[in-house]
Amino acid sequence: MRWPWRRIIAGDQLIVSWADGEVAFVRARPRSDGGFDVRQMGVERQGTDSREDFVRRLQALGLKGASAHIMLRPAQYQLLQIDVPAVAPEELRAAARYQIRDMVNVHIDDLTLDVMRVGDGQQKGTPHLFVVAAETAIVRDVLDLGDALHWTVSVIDIQETVQRNLQSLLARNEGRLERADAALLVADANHALLTISANEELFYARRLELPEGFMAMDWGSKDEAGMAVSETFIPVGEYVPEYNVGGVSHGSDYTGGGASASGDGNELAQRFLVEVQRSLDLWDRSWSSLPLSGLRVSAGARSTELAQWLGREMGQTVTAIDMGTHFSGLDTKDAADRAMCLPLLGALLRTEGRKL
């Protein structure tokens, strides 16, 4: 099957994600100025409906018979990083399959794989590949829904790359493509995705678990948000799994997200804050030739509040993502739906010839 590296434009474009009993979708039409008119957007939940009843509900929304572009959400695949195998380009996938066999959580024969190069190919040192590994059964389930709705599925994409497309568009409009650009998108109450790109290529991605109740906290209050990062107490003896920047593995001596057993809002919010700061600091140390221009954030109706809190606590330039100029009609949509559907907009920006 084909992974994300092609864009087809013909009339209205339908972008869809299907995960955990939820379909998020965007229907948009290209404009002559390069932007898009968002004609339809929403989130539909299957709930207790049978597959047949759910399909009928989606058909009633006018989603039948479209040429669709699918985006997998992070829970539906693993994004791994390996050294580029010393093989011919046409053999990269086969070599990557062998190399990641001990890194995946299911049998390698049950996975659908594709690869893309980390960064823009200009960095020094050993080159690296991102390897996308999705269970074939999950991919098949998405395609089965498409078959039931008579979709022609042209592309399957992943959230990291469509998020890169959105931040690259904003960086291009600001004349900052050659500087690194970080984006943090909160699509639901439990998870956020941090990506760093430069020169329109993805360099870094990290998934962050949100503390329980984080999206309901008063981030402007010291009672909720707690101390600044520099004042935060770091528990000793806890562990967070290693993660990678530019192929270099790094660890941490404390957990991020909602791993604390105390459940205290101050501590949990601070752990998330420190994990974001740690990622940005690690980038600055690892990629001094590509300084960060700032951090962009999206959290639905609370995007501006999150940007202000992170900017104040970390001393970084943090701005709320606003795609309204390029995607007209967003302001008429439900805020919760906008948060979940925002990554899908990046699939509309897919361009030809992505480098391996």
Results as ranks from 00 to 15, higher is better:
residue 1 M to T: 11
residue 4 P to F: 06
residue 6 R to H: 10
residue 8 I to S: 14
residue 11 G to Y: 02
residue 13 Q to Y: 06
residue 14 L to C: 08
residue 15 I to A: 14
residue 18 W to C: 14
residue 28 A to C: 14
residue 31 R to N: 12
residue 31 R to H: 07
residue 31 R to Q: 12
residue 34 G to S: 07
residue 39 R to S: 15
residue 42 G to K: 10
residue 43 V to C: 13
residue 43 V to H: 08
residue 44 E to M: 11
residue 46 Q to G: 13
residue 48 T to W: 08
residue 49 D to F: 09
residue 69 H to C: 14
residue 72 L to R: 13
residue 82 I to S: 12
residue 89 P to G: 14
residue 93 R to F: 06
residue 95 A to D: 05
residue 96 A to K: 04
residue 96 A to M: 07
residue 101 R to K: 15
residue 113 L to Q: 02
residue 114 D to V: 05
residue 114 D to A: 08
residue 114 D to Q: 01
residue 118 V to Q: 07
residue 119 G to E: 01
residue 119 G to V: 07
residue 120 D to I: 04
residue 122 Q to P: 00
residue 123 Q to G: 07
residue 132 V to K: 03
residue 134 A to T: 05
residue 137 A to R: 11
residue 138 I to R: 12
residue 142 V to T: 12
residue 144 D to E: 15
residue 148 A to G: 04
residue 150 H to A: 15
residue 153 V to I: 12
residue 173 N to G: 10
residue 176 R to V: 06
residue 176 R to A: 09
residue 177 L to W: 01
residue 178 E to C: 05
residue 180 A to N: 02
residue 181 D to P: 04
residue 183 A to Q: 11
residue 184 L to N: 00
residue 186 V to G: 02
residue 196 I to G: 04
residue 203 F to R: 01
residue 204 Y to L: 09
residue 205 A to I: 01
residue 207 R to I: 00
residue 208 L to D: 03
residue 209 E to M: 01
residue 213 G to L: 03
residue 214 F to Y: 10
residue 214 F to M: 03
residue 218 D to E: 03
residue 223 D to C: 01
residue 224 E to A: 10
residue 227 M to L: 12
residue 229 V to A: 14
residue 229 V to Y: 04
residue 235 P to K: 04
residue 237 G to F: 08
residue 237 G to N: 11
residue 241 P to L: 01
residue 241 P to K: 09
residue 241 P to I: 05
residue 243 Y to L: 11
residue 245 V to P: 04
residue 250 H to A: 13
residue 251 G to Y: 12
residue 251 G to T: 09
residue 252 S to M: 12
residue 256 G to T: 10
residue 256 G to R: 08
residue 256 G to V: 10
residue 260 S to P: 02
residue 260 S to T: 07
residue 264 D to S: 07
residue 265 G to M: 11
residue 275 E to N: 13
residue 277 Q to D: 15
residue 281 D to M: 06
residue 282 L to R: 14
residue 282 L to N: 14
residue 283 W to P: 03
residue 283 W to M: 06
residue 283 W to F: 06
residue 287 W to Q: 15
residue 289 S to Q: 12
residue 291 P to L: 01
residue 292 L to C: 04
residue 293 S to T: 10
residue 293 S to V: 02
residue 294 G to F: 04
residue 295 L to G: 05
residue 300 G to L: 02
residue 301 A to W: 01
residue 303 S to H: 00
residue 316 Q to R: 14
residue 320 A to D: 00
residue 321 I to E: 08
residue 323 M to K: 03
residue 324 G to L: 03
residue 325 T to G: 06
residue 325 T to M: 08
residue 325 T to R: 12
residue 325 T to I: 05
residue 328 S to A: 11
residue 331 D to E: 14
residue 335 A to K: 06
residue 335 A to Q: 10
residue 338 R to D: 03
residue 338 R to W: 05
residue 341 C to L: 03
residue 344 L to N: 02
residue 349 L to K: 02
residue 354 R to T: 10
residue 355 K to T: 04
